[in-house]
Simulated scan of single mutants.
Amino acid sequence: MRFKLIIASVKPHITDPVVDAAKAAGATGATIITGRGTGIREAHTFFGLTLEDQTDLIYFLLEEHLVAPVLEAVRTAGKFDQPGTGIAYVLPVENAVGLESQIEHFKEGIRDL
């Protein structure tokens, strides 16, 4: 099986809708990491202190055939067509371990079709 990794960077208030949409499109789970980010828009300052926007990085490890529908679900739920809402990108995965239970789940789904 071939796997790919979708990484989505979103504002915390839309993390749950993005994860829910991805699961509805076929993702079996996600890893969420909290961070800070900067982009074209400069961080706000308040009394000389810089306030950086918090961001969540959402990782989806997927079988290759699920990438397109999950990425589209992430784009739609994250409202990525609007400026400053987030980004998502796909990386190839060379090797992965610890996915045996997921692979069995996928095989059972194929048998049920």
Rank of each mutant, 00 (worst) to 15 (best):
P69C: 11
E52I: 01
T50N: 11
G86N: 04
E63N: 00
D56Y: 10
P69H: 07
F80L: 15
P92A: 08
I103K: 11
H105M: 12
N95Y: 07
Y89K: 04
I87W: 11
K79N: 15
V70E: 06
V93Y: 04
I58D: 03
F106W: 14
V97L: 10
D56I: 04
E100Q: 15
T76I: 07
A96D: 02
I58C: 13
L62S: 00
L91P: 01
K107M: 09
E64R: 01
T55H: 06
I103G: 00
R75I: 03
V74C: 12
V70G: 09
A77V: 01
V74S: 10
V97G: 11
L66G: 02
I103M: 12
F47M: 09
E72G: 12
I103A: 11
V90S: 03
L61A: 12
L71F: 08
T76S: 13
F60M: 14
Q102A: 07
P83W: 12
A88G: 10
D81G: 14
P83F: 13
A77Q: 04
L57H: 05
E52A: 12
G86F: 11
T50L: 06
L62C: 02
F80K: 09
P83Y: 13
V67R: 06
E63G: 01
V93S: 05
T76E: 13
R75D: 11
G48R: 10
P69E: 10
K107C: 01
G84E: 14
N95S: 09
Q82Y: 10
N95F: 11
H65L: 05
T76W: 00
A88Q: 10
F46P: 00
D81T: 04
L66M: 14
H65Q: 12
V74W: 02
D53L: 01
I87D: 08
G84N: 14
G78C: 10
P69M: 13
R75E: 12
P83K: 08
S101Q: 13
E63C: 01
D56Q: 09
T76N: 10
Q82D: 13
I103L: 14
V74D: 08
G86W: 07
K107V: 07
V97M: 10
P69F: 10
V93F: 03
P69N: 11
G86Q: 04
H105T: 09
I87Q: 13
D81C: 03
T45C: 08
Q82K: 15
E63T: 08
P92H: 01
V90R: 05
G48C: 08
L57G: 02
I87R: 14
Q54E: 15
L66T: 04
E94L: 14
L91N: 07
E104T: 05
A77M: 07
E94R: 08
A73S: 08
L71K: 13
G48H: 11
L66C: 04
F60R: 08
I87P: 00
V67S: 09
G98I: 05
G98Q: 05
A68S: 15
V74N: 08
P69W: 06
L91W: 04
A73H: 06
D53G: 09
H65D: 14
K107A: 15
I87V: 15
V74T: 14
F46G: 00
T55G: 01
L51G: 00
I58H: 06
G98P: 05
A68M: 08
L49F: 07
F80C: 09
E63P: 00
E52S: 11
V67T: 12
K79G: 13
H65K: 14
L62R: 01
Y59T: 02
F106I: 13
V70P: 02
F60S: 09
G98H: 04
